[in-house]
Each structure stands twice: as structure tokens, then as C-alpha cells.
């Protein structure tokens, strides 16, 4: 990550902000709120004192304990999804100052270094809002079922170890396996759109994360037993052909997973799979 940080101008800006951050300042949080599905959304602003090391989560915790707007009106605590707070569970993903990311690793010093600076928080737009900043990402997990993202083991019996694997192959799979199903790649994808009708999930675009997971399991010696079924799923409607090659996914992935490499690799595999099927007359 360090190298990536050094090459990324936005990361350089954040580092500069962090250095110039003013101690004891107050930051304005503009939060897009919505009481539930079908309800209109509205904006509310909160003034939050920022101690050193504060992140979006600690500020939301402050608001939860003191739900009073900048105008002095009492309101309800803001609702948001969170879990580990160390960027491994993926829960606290939201749109912060226009870019999708995890709120736990969004440090206020990086984004709002001066007195009165504004942080804008919005829910992800590609998933239905449950309330405020909390969205329902069940479609994302459903799509993992579509590509059978698992190794088909013969149960939990004692059957000895798994296949021998080279360190290089392990390195490739480990990187892919760090995907925490946060949905950043889907939020940034022009081809992946809000779909509230569950019946349409199986035929709408599956998304970069699921394509990459299909690759992860096709790369495993036992996982590859289901290779053809995964490729069939990616060949169908809403599969890999729906990818418009915008390459936004890889730019927003917090774990730097090589999603476009995965898409390219699976694209080739799907093409070959299609040709084979053609010659087999399937």
C-alpha cells in the first residue's frame, strides 16, 4: 500500500492535510438522512469537536450521544452500519465527500483539517437505503451464490490436507481473498445500478467483486471442479459481458485487489469456455 499511496495525488493531499490539521477545531458534518424505504431524504448538519485521531465513526458516535443539529434542534441519532472499525469487515462503507470508502479509516485530519471544514456523508446509492447511512447489501452476497464462490468439499470428515500450493499461487489467491464484500467497486461502477426487485438480481450485472471471487475459486485445485458452472454463470445475462471497462472498480477498492486483472482473466476464460461449448455443440 505504501507505494500506491505515494503515487496517488489524493493520498498526497490527505497526507498534507494531516500535517496541517488544526488542534481543537470543530468540523461540520452534513449528513443525508432518510427515515426508511420510500421516505424522502433530507440533509442535517452537526457541529462536531474533533480530537486528535478522530475518524468519521468517532464523530458519528459523538452525534449519536448528542443528537442536536447546528441549528440547535433535537433530532434522532444518525443510523449507520459498522463493525470492526479497522477496515477488515467492510460494514461501514458510505460515500464521504463524494467518494465511496470505509468510514472507519476516513480520518478527519485527512479531509477536514481546518476550523469549520465540512464533511459530507451519504449512503451508497446502488443499494436500497434502510435508514440514513445504512443500506441493504444482500444483493452483493446473493451474487456470490450465483458464481458458487466456495470449494465443494466432501464434508468436514478427516480426509487429510488440501492440495500443495506454490507460494506464488497462494499470494495471488490471498490478495483476491481479502475482498470484504464492502461494495465500493459496485458503487463506483457505471454498469451496476440500483435494483430493488430481487427477481431481477439473477439477470442484472453481477459486479467486479463476484467476477474476482469466481477467479479466486477457479484458481484453487479443488475449487476448479466447479469452474465450468462459474463460467456458465458469467456467460449469461448480467455476466461479464455487461462490464463496460470503466475501470472505476479497481480505483476505489480499499484492499487494492486487482479487479481489472480478474475481469480480464475471467473474460478470456469465458471466451475459451464459449468456444469449447460451441464445438461440443452445447
Amino acid at each position: 500500500m505504501s507505494t500506491a499511496t505515494k503515487l496517488d495525488p489524493a493520498a498526497a493531499q490527505r497526507a498534507a492535510n494531516r500535517k496541517s490539521a488544526k488542534a481543537g477545531r470543530t468540523v461540520i458534518f452534513r449528513v443525508k438522512r432518510c427515515e426508511g424505504p420510500g421516505k424522502p431524504s433530507r440533509w442535517e448538519e452537526f457541529k462536531v469537536p474533533v480530537p486528535p485521531g478522530a475518524n468519521v465513526i468517532s464523530c458519528l458516535q459523538h452525534i449519536a450521544a448528542n443528537p442536536v443539529t447546528t441549528q440547535g434542534a433535537r433530532t434522532t441519532p444518525v443510523v449507520w452500519d459498522s463493525g470492526c472499525l479497522e477496515e477488515v469487515c467492510g460494514a461501514c462503507t458510505m460515500v464521504i465527500n463524494g467518494r465511496v470508502r470505509q468510514s472507519c479509516s476516513a480520518l478527519i485530519d485527512d479531509y477536514a483539517p481546518q476550523e469549520g471544514d465540512v464533511m459530507v456523508l451519504e449512503p451508497m446509492s446502488k443499494f436500497p437505503v434502510v435508514r440514513d447511512l445504512w443500506v441493504d447489501r444482500s444483493r452483493l452476497f446473493h451474487n456470490l451464490q450465483r458464481v458458487k464462490a466456495w470449494v465443494p468439499i466432501d464434508g468436514t470428515y478427516d480426509l487429510g490436507s488440501g492440495p500443495i500450493e506454490s507460494p506464488a499461487s497462494q499470494g495471488t489467491r490471498y490478495k483476491l481473498s481479502e475482498c470484504m464484500s464492502c461494495g465500493c467497486c459496485l458503487e463506483a461502477c457505471p454498469q451496476f445500478n440500483l435494483e430493488e426487485d430481487k427477481a431481477a438480481w439473477d439477470t442484472s450485472f453481477i459486479g467486479a467483486h463476484a467476477i474476482s471471487q469466481a477467479r479466486l475459486f477457479n484458481e484453487h485445485a479443488t475449487g476448479a471442479i466447479l469452474k465450468d458452472e462459474r463460467l456458465d454463470a458469467l456467460m449469461g445475462q448480467g455476466g461479464i459481458n455487461d462490464c463496460g471497462n470503466a475501470q472505476n472498480c479497481v480505483k476505489v477498492c480499499p484492499k487494492h485487489i486487482p479487479l481489472t486483472e480478474s475481469i480480464a482473466a475471467m473474460g478470456r476464460a469465458v471466451t475459451i469456455h464459449g468456444i469449447k461449448k460451441f464445438f461440443r455443440g452445447e
Binding site: I153, Q170, F217, T222
Partner: peptide
């Protein structure tokens, strides 16, 4: 062994 069979990318 079981985790290994499930595909855990152990170093």
C-alpha cells in the same frame, strides 16, 4: 487440514 481443503490461503 479441513480449513486447507476449504481453500484457506495459508502462507
Amino acid at each position: 487440514d479441513l480449513l486447507d481443503r476449504m481453500g484457506v490461503p495459508f502462507n
